[in-house]
């Protein structure tokens, strides 16, 4: 994934101001910074949820900014997996169907999609909660379902926006381990977080944002698992 001189302006305010960043396959990059520094805007640009005012965003060789809405939707299905702070599960579907839905959108037959979803839930340790609706799942369980949904179509890039932001410390710990494990298995991860522990545990590179600009970018050795 590559951002080149990306600038995003809302009215008179530049949310991103000439940002260039490259994330290679297998990287785990944590973007950090104070509120309003442009972290989420960066994530939206990469996911194709928003378009840069100037500059280019390339993911897996595709120019995201040049795509139309329908093409962007297809791009997100295939290339991007998103994990949200508040999980954003569909309340009316049970866990298994929430996960399988992402596969069904790609055109995977219902039976196969459910099999794959169950496999993912099993890997994440919540297969026994597959029939539960989001409302009755704990925060950690919901986030695991969210992660499973993000991984459903084997995305090139997993984007996580404050994935531990709405979780208690114990559950946050579980999610940190989960993301670390995924990255170790080869999943490219781009994290936006305030959580120092998450960044220290999972990221191989730290990027600090202030006022829409990258002020620091350093490689780091992951903290050992306690």
């Amino acid at each position: 994934m590559r951002l080149e001189a990306v600038r995003k302006v809302y009215g008179d305010v530049a949310a991103l101001d000439g940002v260039s960043l490259e994330v290679r396959g297998g990287d785990a990059v944590a973007v950090m910074g104070p509120s309003g520094s442009g972290k989420s805007t960066l994530l939206n640009m990469v996911a194709g949820l928003d378009k840069p005012t100037t500059g280019t965003v390339t993911v897996d060789g595709e120019d995201v900014g040049a795509k139309g809405e329908a093409a962007l939707a297809r791009f997100r299905r295939r290339r991007i997996g998103m994990v949200f702070q508040f999980f954003n599960l569909l309340d009316d579907l049970p866990a298994l169907e929430n996960v399988a839905l992402a596969g069904r959108l790609v055109g995977v037959p219902a039976r196969k999609a459910r099999a794959r979803a169950l496999e993912l839930l099993d890997e994440l340790g919540i297969a026994d909660r597959r029939a539960a609706y989001p409302a009755v799942l704990s925060g950690g369980e919901r986030q695991r379902v969210g992660v499973a949904r993000a991984l459903m179509n084997r995305p090139a890039l997993l984007l996580a926006d404050e994935p531990t932001g709405a979780l208690d410390s114990g559950t946050g710990e579980q999610v940190r381990d989960l993301l670390l494990d995924l990255n170790r298995k080869g999943q490219t991860v781009l994290l936006v977080t305030h959580d120092q522990a998450l960044a220290g545990r999972c990221a191989t590179r730290l990027v600090d944002f202030v006022d829409g600009r990258i002020v620091r970018e350093v490689a780091q050795a992951r903290e050992p698992v306690k």
Binding site: R78, L90, L105, R149
Partner: peptide
């Protein structure tokens, strides 16, 4: 609106 946002985020096209 939130559900629609989620669906679009996971790849639902405007036509869908």
């Amino acid at each position: 609106s939130r559900d629609l946002g989620v669906l679009k985020a996971v790849g639902m096209t405007p036509r869908q």
